[in-house]
């Protein structure tokens, strides 16, 4: 199963990226991993939406029932570097997810 990073439209240039191909099960594992990871702090969402924020100011939004995941890159990152920043978050999420799966 491959997950891809796709730019999503926003007023703030190039700050939103969607993860395509995340299954509901993968989303559930990722949610557990983010909840357990001290580097990501949860802040209030809406409905069932879960929002996690890193110390660098990046955010991960996750809708558990659909598996939708969106990365919001911190505004302090220059526009030209935002895709790389989002890719960096994706790599971290993949690592967290793998570790959570291994842990069971």
């Amino acid at each position: 199963m491959s997950v891809t990073l796709a730019r999503e439209l926003a007023c703030a240039r190039s700050r939103l990226f969607g993860l395509r191909g995340v299954t509901i099960e993968q989303g559930r594992i990722l949610l557990g991993a983010l909840e357990a990871c001290p580097r990501w702090r949860e802040r209030p969402g809406i409905g069932e939406l879960r929002i996690f924020r890193s110390a660098a100011g990046h955010e991960v939004l996750l809708v558990p029932s659909t598996g939708r995941v969106q990365i919001r890159v911190a505004y302090v990152v220059p526009p030209i570097e935002r895709f790389d920043a989002a890719a960096g978050v994706l790599v971290e999420l993949a690592r967290l997810g793998r570790a959570a799966r291994r842990a069971g």
């Binding site: 969402g45 809406i46 409905g47 939406l49 996750l62 809708v63 659909t66 969106q70």
Partner: peptide, 15 residues
């Protein structure tokens, strides 16, 4: 339109 396409909306109203 932005709200309708957002994860926030999806979490409230579904896909």
């Amino acid at each position: 339109g932005g709200i309708l396409l957002s994860p926030e909306w999806e979490s409230v109203a579904g896909r």
